[in-house]
Computed example of a mutant assay.
Amino acid sequence: MKKMVGLSLTLMLSAAVVLSGCGAKDNGASNGGTAPAPANNASGGAAPSQTFKLGMVTDIGGVNDKSFNQSAWEGLNKLKGNGVEVKYLQSKSDADYVPNLNQFVKDGYTLTWGIGFLMGDQLKTVATQNPDAKLAIIDNVVDAKNVASVTFAENEGAYLVGVVAGLMTKTNKIGFVGGVDIPVIKRFDLGFEAGVKAVNPKAEIVKNYTGAFDKPDLGKAAAATMYNNNVDIIFHAAGATGNGVFNEAKDRVKSGKKVWVIGVDKDQSLEFGDDVTLTSMLKRVDEAVVKVSKEAMEGKFQGGVVQVLGLKENGVGLPDTSKKNVPADVLAKVDEYKQKIIKGEIKVPTAQ
């Protein structure tokens, strides 16, 4: 009997050790930016033997900027599950870039993303110090064999929304609100102006670079000044600062004045509504993130390669929801200019 009791206790203790070992497994949930992979795949079978980890470092705009960073994070989340873990680290200032990037590298992530032009120098430093790590960046070119660089022809997409603004303005005064004055934002600016002028040479374009991507109050103030001066359409390329442009437009519409905003990066009508969003200039950051991440997981990572995504590559454009507020004849004109750009008949101004 004593031997049987001893054997039972041994079995119970062994089971307890196994269970406690399972419960102690870290799923990464201690960090608010983690979206861990489930233990099983979508079909209910066993998880793959290999786990891929994809990390993303935001710029100072933050993951909920309703624009650029959010689009990248949504892209990563499309890959979550079935052996793929995704996680982001948010940067409050540029001093956070290197520590955040290094954390993913130190933890052996399959691929580490740096989101935004402003992170270029810091990502280059981390890549140089960790030649075996794989990194990728959006909106900048980092010359390193272990970095994949993805840029966009923002000027081409901005040209098309410029055509919309030029044909639909009633006051002949159109606004542009930018974030920091860097080449990426300058491409939006120059393309937009060229599109407006192509269809409406007499239109006046008022510009304001706020100097920030994370200050909605500055965007709201810039928009208020423009709307007060008879601007009726504003295109923003300012990240979370642009949220303030939408907030000001909503206030104006509530008071009975009809004004418009042209969104950026995502279909911003889904966030701010059709009553103020004329259209948006899509920048398919999410699809770029998915593409490069899959390449890394499949062993096809293209380090040292620069991918430029424009109209021809379907990297920029207008959302289908544009037809809610943009008349069919204007959209036909947009498509006409789109084809001319793709064929090379129109060279859209750009900035390096």
Rank of each mutant, 00 (worst) to 15 (best):
S49P: 13
S49K: 10
S49N: 15
S49D: 13
S49V: 12
S49Q: 13
Q50H: 11
Q50A: 11
Q50V: 10
Q50E: 13
T51C: 15
T51F: 08
F52M: 08
F52G: 02
F52D: 02
K53I: 10
L54H: 02
L54G: 13
L54R: 02
G55D: 05
G55V: 01
G55P: 01
G55I: 00
M56P: 09
M56R: 03
M56L: 14
V57L: 08
V57C: 08
V57E: 07
T58N: 12
T58M: 09
T58H: 11
D59F: 05
D59M: 08
D59N: 11
D59W: 00
D59V: 01
I60F: 02
I60D: 03
I60W: 01
I60N: 03
G61F: 01
G62N: 05
G62M: 08
G62Y: 04
G62H: 04
G62F: 06
V63W: 04
V63N: 09
V63E: 07
V63D: 07
V63P: 06
N64H: 10
N64L: 14
N64M: 15
D65G: 09
D65Q: 02
K66T: 11
K66Y: 12
K66N: 14
K66F: 05
S67G: 14
S67M: 06
S67P: 14
F68S: 02
F68Q: 02
F68L: 05
N69K: 01
N69G: 00
N69W: 08
N69H: 04
Q70K: 06
Q70Y: 03
Q70I: 00
Q70L: 10
S71H: 01
S71A: 15
S71T: 07
A72P: 01
W73Q: 07
W73D: 05
W73R: 01
W73F: 05
W73M: 06
E74Q: 12
E74W: 03
E74M: 11
E74P: 00
E74Y: 11
E74H: 05
G75R: 04
G75M: 07
G75D: 07
L76Q: 13
L76M: 14
L76S: 04
N77E: 15
N77D: 13
N77V: 06
N77K: 14
K78E: 14
K78Q: 11
K78L: 12
L79K: 11
L79R: 12
L79C: 06
L79T: 14
L79F: 09
K80A: 12
K80S: 15
K80P: 08
K80E: 13
K80Y: 08
G81P: 05
G81H: 09
G81S: 08
G81T: 06
G81D: 09
N82S: 14
N82Q: 12
N82R: 13
N82P: 10
G83E: 04
G83N: 04
G83M: 04
